[in-house]
Design a protein around this nucleic acid. Structure first.
Lengths: 154, 154
DNA sequence: TAATTGGGTACCATTTTAGTCCTGTATAAA
DNA sequence: TTTATACAGGACTAAAATGGTACCCAATTA
């Protein structure tokens, strides 16, 4: 599936909700109500987002959560890595030289390039895009054959 | 992590190994030895690849596995879905209209577009690319701002 | 100082994943 | 026709990740 975890999915929804009303501070209870998810689960998600620096929190009466920076400066990659860690397709695409199978693998290099391309794509999608009801504008994908490559991944 | 499962990783390595010597038939034992993975695990992976129509098998003496079609016609997306099922980032990006949270979600549409872009990317990478030691040529990623969108996702 | 609201941690249930094993069946060569 | 080879299919188990919950503490403000 190459699937996001359910919590990541929640995180995106919650972030979008906050982004749509970024003036106000949002309590966990408000958000849980708005997105129809259990309070403790939303709370857990929010804490992870704060830890990743995407949200700021304010304790006490009238407290709550708000975006740490404009929605246009928060990317899908940011949200995903806040919950799941670095965006990478395989173990070896994050840490260089730790795979004992490297010798027999013969795929690592190109797999890492693919991983990088996906990361780039996810970095080009911002929370502002996600929260907007208008269709997102994705980068054009030119067919491989037409491209000289080294320029692309650099 | 947006990570592939370990089996998928194995599948890619095994497929690349077969692709590099596509004339011959490969037994499970040979492949397990070549990629340094346990025999039963490789066997399981191979069976899944056959079921997905990416490999053909021949029983009996002198039997083994070979590619069902040229490496240039097998994509990374094929391999991933053979092991993990359809490439999709979220539950709702595969099945339309089955999410009870759709009303409060407000992210589904754009999330699906992102998912589609990733699928397109993975479909543009072939086994021939992966098996090759030369750097893969990935599609150019133009910055979002520069693009008029509707043309892109169509 | 009381009420509100987030912070941190620990815990448990469930699901998914990975890996193994066993038995059956097809094929080719002797 | 027999026998060795090799894949097919399924059941099973162990381990890990995931998701969800509960509890208590800390900070803030009225």
């Amino acid at each position: 599936m190459l699937k996001l975890s359910r919590l990541t999915d929640y995180a995106a929804v919650v972030m979008a909700q906050i982004a749509r009303h970024h003036q106000a501070s949002h309590t966990t209870a408000d958000l849980a109500e708005a997105v129809q998810l259990p309070h403790p689960t939303v709370s857990k998600t929010l804490k992870m987002l704060v830890k990743a620096g995407l949200l700021e929190s304010q304790r006490g009466v009238q407290g709550g959560y708000r975006l740490a920076r404009p929605a246009s400066q928060i990317t899908a990659a940011d949200i995903i890595s806040a919950i799941e860690g670095p965006v990478a397709m395989t173990e070896c695409s994050q840490a260089e030289g730790e795979c004992e199978l490297a010798a027999t693998c013969g795929v690592a290099d190109n797999w890492q390039r693919v991983s990088l391309a996906i990361r780039t794509l996810l970095e080009s999608v911002t929370l502002a895009h996600l929260a907007d009801t208008a269709p997102i504008k994705l980068p054009v994908q030119l067919p491989i054959q037409s491209i000289s490559l080294s320029a692309a991944s650099a």
